[in-house]
Nucleic acid binder design. Sequence first.
DNA 1: CGTCCAATTGACTGCGTTCAAGAGCCGTGG
DNA 2: CCACGGCTCTTGAACGCAGTCAATTGGACG
Lengths: 263, 263
Amino acid sequence: MTSENPAPNRRRSPIEPVSIERHHCTPAEQVRILAATPFFRTVSPDHMLRLASTFRQADYFAGASIQRSGEPAARLSIVAAGMVKLVRHTASGQDVLLDIIGSGDFFGSLADLGDLTYQEDATAHTDCCILYTTAEEFRQVLRTYPEVTIATLDLVAARLRTAQQVIEHISAHPVDQRVAATLLHFARRIGRNVDETILIDMPLSRQDLADMTGAQVETVSRVMSEFRRAGIIESGRRWTAIRDVKALENIAGHLPLTTRAVT
Amino acid sequence: MTSENPAPNRRRSPIEPVSIERHHCTPAEQVRILAATPFFRTVSPDHMLRLASTFRQADYFAGASIQRSGEPAARLSIVAAGMVKLVRHTASGQDVLLDIIGSGDFFGSLADLGDLTYQEDATAHTDCCILYTTAEEFRQVLRTYPEVTIATLDLVAARLRTAQQVIEHISAHPVDQRVAATLLHFARRIGRNVDETILIDMPLSRQDLADMTGAQVETVSRVMSEFRRAGIIESGRRWTAIRDVKALENIAGHLPLTTRAVT
DNA sequence: CGTCCAATTGACTGCGTTCAAGAGCCGTGG
DNA sequence: CCACGGCTCTTGAACGCAGTCAATTGGACG
């Protein structure tokens, strides 16, 4: 049987042509993307033009390194397209995956004086397009546009709250609950309703889930198999689908890792 | 034997008269304390006077509840004197202690729109004095004084970095390393050099350490006994002393939980 | 068709939790 | 001043969740 003729019991991958990520943005697109970002929603279009000119662009193929921990924290980066992994490598060799972020999200330095070096690696999780400015230039933007500073504060505060939620989960909940919460986290951010299920259309390996939940690959695999056997989820190479959100929420303890539904 | 005549083998508690925390601040002290806070360092004295008038004061005895998670996030609070515990109670009954903060630190709501209810309990860890303003008033302050917004952003960004460090530790390091890192965390914040040791002059129960490291009381007790037997630490009812910082740093993996030396 | 890597599953180990009992320390009240 | 009660802390012993090691499967791609 070919891929045109799916197996009877298992529906075929719901992401049709493996949508190719945009790999480069025109200047007009840059402005549009930046303006839509939580940072700059309040900025008027003409100011936005000048402001966007302080940003440069860089494209990366999946797997490429964007920034490395320990390097001087020189840039503030915003994801224009694609997804970026934020990873801390520990001395013991275990990786800690802080988050996988998408279009409109930021990473890098906010130019806090104490923030002299990057604390984590940023890697292109898919092919992606990054808009970046220097820490100093962004600092200048903050001084010029106070409403941007407030927006930035809200973004960082939201991320702090998420981080504290993660601390709670890793401190006090068993692995299956943490995996469930992580799946709901992505469902809320990028989930789309498809065929009575919530489709998470992104690569999310067992290793990724393990690094996000502070667990081992094998453990996550067992948990995911359990979920699959219970009819709660379904997953393929580049996607995961939640068939029974209620069940997942029950397992996660009614406490999803992120509240915001939109990015 | 009286407390004037210490036991031969064990030096007596190094905190002399169990210093009584100030329990109420005069208006002048309020202004001085607020002005010394990272929020308002850049504000000129005359502006500071007006600004301080938006704050009210409340005093709490040790153990008293200051805010409860789930309540509407109406206040931004700053610790004027004493120490405050920030705790999340989990459904399973286990507590997660996010931090114990002191003079100049803040907690509560930054008036982020999404931050509608408190995410954690705040409890008076010692007798303490809290200066608070409403979330709305503080929002107005941010709009009026952009440099305060930038300072706030830096504070929240620093706290985010600390939280991510905690995530790394709890995800990837065994309990003894986490306890060591937590002791160093407090040593850097409030440690004083006394008799070749670093004295952490605050109540810090095994339960507190357990809740901060995501471990159980018994496990922390074993680890601390191990440290004591190795001559690394010494501890009493209201204090902990580090005799061998290098050893602790080695155990923690040269990665203390906080970098800043001053509050 | 063969190679490579992710995922799965099983068996065993061990760190940390859980359960339980005892020791130390302190405030209180007789 | 000492005895009592309640608390935290400590230590021991057994259990269990998750980690580790190892072998196999399965899917993607050249």
